[in-house]
């Protein structure tokens, strides 16, 4: 059983980076690196992570790292994996490194979906992590395909009117060997999912909710708290998909099993500034109802039905 004590002390994410205070992406990198270790090649598509790693000639990331163009996540990984195979053939690599592709929701849901889909279909052997802050935070918080209904962004000044897409389900439809979601409030769950992904051959997709303090308008000190509330209210479900089966994990599993009570979505909405406007509007109750219905629909898709106590 993994405990905090058993996690490696070595930090491959180096302190003093250019990340904002309380940045979920930097914490996610830190934990991912602990799971994968130093025999890892990191690829980063244009996102906050291109910026929070520092600027030339200094870097906060103690791994071989290539920054890639926005739309190229999957393809860039395929190139590296093919290169590694060629080096193995030459006899120049003893231990194959893990290839980790790191992208935001813009680079995954929107501009990068084609390259990601292609890499998955080609069964490229790599881990794709999408750290999803539900908006284009790096360019100043514009709407993305991951933005939930009702959320304010600079390009949805009255609140987004469309639903977010469920990209984890799209990845499951590719029949890749491993799909999982994770939350920073449950670091051991995330860590174990990364460890598992490292051992599986083929394309592994892990999506992490990354509450962005300036983008979602909450104090940096509450980053973990907001992450936790997203899971507790069901807006972010923790699960794994393996061998054709969905399996809830951690806090979500306890919620589905009725061991802990699901909290109302509105509690989660109220701790953030981005839903303030829609909650205060005449459509506030309707938006709240639609988001609750979204939770039920997501559970239904994964589980087949929604237990009556939820």
């Amino acid at each position: 059983m993994v405990s905090f004590k058993s996690l490696p002390e070595e930090e491959l994410f180096l302190a003093g980076s250019t990340a904002c205070q309380g940045c979920p992406a930097s914490l996610a990198l830190r934990i991912a690196f602990k799971a994968l270790g130093s025999n890892t090649i990191l690829l980063v598509v244009a996102s906050c992570t291109s910026v929070l790693q520092g600027s030339y000639p200094h870097s906060a990331i103690n791994l071989p790292l290539m920054n890639a163009a926005f739309a190229t996540g999957g393809a860039t990984a395929s190139g590296v994996v093919a290169g590694i195979k060629a080096l193995v053939k030459r006899g120049e690599l003893e231990e194959e490194p893990t290839v980790l592709m790191w992208a935001g929701d813009g680079g995954t849901y929107d501009i990068g979906i084609q390259a990601l889909s292609g890499a998955a279909e080609r069964e490229t052997d790599f881990i794709y992590v999408c750290y999803n802050n539900e908006m284009y935070s790096n360019t100043g918080t514009q709407r993305s395909g991951a933005t939930p209904i009702g959320a304010w962004t600079t390009t949805t000044p009255g609140g987004k009117v469309q639903h977010r897409k469920d990209i984890a389900q799209i990845m499951i439809a590719h029949r890749i060997p491993y799909v999982a979601t994770a939350s920073l409030a449950y670091p051991l769950d995330f860590y174990q999912k990364m460890l598992k992904a490292r051992e599986i051959r083929g394309t592994k997709y892990i999506e992490l909710l990354a509450p962005c303090p300036p983008g979602w308008k909450f104090p940096s000190s509450k980053m973990i708290e907001v992450s936790r509330m997203a899971v507790q209210c069901g807006m972010w479900l923790l699960y794994e998909h393996e061998d054709g089966e969905n399996r809830f994990t951690g806090a979500t599993k306890r919620m589905i099993e009725g061991k802990v009570k699901k909290k109302p979505v509105v509690d989660y909405l109220e701790v953030q500034g981005r839903f303030k406007q829609v909650l205060a509007s005449p459509e506030g109750k309707e938006a709240e109802r639609m988001l609750e219905e979204d939770v039920s629909e997501s559970i239904r898709r994964l589980h087949g039905w929604v237990p009556e106590y939820i």
Binding site: A15, Q21, G22, L27, S221
Partner: peptide
Amino acid sequence: CWIFCPEATITKDIEIDYQYCKGCGICAVE
């Protein structure tokens, strides 16, 4: 506090590296 620090400024012995700690406050909340 060690696992939740986004900046890797708290050691496993719970020593805070003030040279780099940005003061996000997550450790205090958690």
